[in-house]
Design a protein around this nucleic acid. Sequence first.
DNA 1: ATAATTCAGACAAATTCTATCCTGATTAAA
DNA 2: TTTAATCAGGATAGAATTTGTCTGAATTAT
Lengths: 136, 136
Amino acid sequence: MEITRETDYAVRCILHLSESPEEIKMVDGIAKTRLIPKSFLSKILQKLTKSGIVKSYRGVKGGFKLARKPEEISLLDVVEAIDGPVAINRCAVDKRLCDLSSMCVVHPIWVELRKDVENRLKNCNFSELIKLSSMK
Amino acid sequence: MEITRETDYAVRCILHLSESPEEIKMVDGIAKTRLIPKSFLSKILQKLTKSGIVKSYRGVKGGFKLARKPEEISLLDVVEAIDGPVAINRCAVDKRLCDLSSMCVVHPIWVELRKDVENRLKNCNFSELIKLSSMK
DNA sequence: ATAATTCAGACAAATTCTATCCTGATTAAA
DNA sequence: TTTAATCAGGATAGAATTTGTCTGAATTAT
Ligand code: SF4
Ligand code: SF4
């Protein structure tokens, strides 16, 4: 039960952009400072753009910057943008995916755990994370 | 971020065995009543045996039964036996898996979330789950 | 126009998931 | 002692997902 590297890369990337939310940054620079394969990051940024977390600027002097303020972006936003819903178990996102769900005693456990994980991720925004890094 | 089907099957299986902890049950019967592919369940039961959750009995009238009481088996035990550690993110199980971990501000978040999920799963044992099913 | 940059999609290697099958070992019972 | 039932372990394999790469088209500042 792990997030993918892709998701971790996305988090690194948003972290990077959060450090100077006004600046437009290029894929190449982000990739190098955050140790992410460049062309892979390119794809990730497309997803982040589609889900409205970053904004893209094409052409010369183009690049990416946050679409909203760091405090308005949660870890959950980023994780869901890349990996889809944090399901924990498939039935927790849609009962109908399992024929046993109506009589299954474990089902409610997964549903509850899912909510819990989601809440924790939702309560963690990138403004807070950045503050932690400036304290070093 | 999901458990695998294999893990879900394992949980179903332990649930089944927990309903009559003294009885030795055959793969075929468990597979049929819990809707698990038989040969796959066979493999799963091998893992559960190796990790000491169930005991196997070979030969005629052989099969499987729980190695300890249902209240002494947690969801975490089963999940870990099949899927390995509940990592949430790779760095949460071993910092050294990521070169950035020493200066990463997200790392502690994953570590904490991991502990939290583990505790929830640890606090859920199969005796409690069975009680829920008998209340229907 | 030109150069720089993202966008979109096709492509593909590696890994993991989801099994199946076969042979051999073990055991209870006839 | 023979036989049938049952698990153990390993080989195999298709499907899905992960983890990327590459290329050409579109866009834009200069
Ligand atoms: S068996 Fe229960 S826990 Fe497993 S997928 Fe079905 S409903 Fe969910
Ligand atoms: S970048 Fe941070 S969160 Fe991601 S794997 Fe490395 S230490 Fe963990």
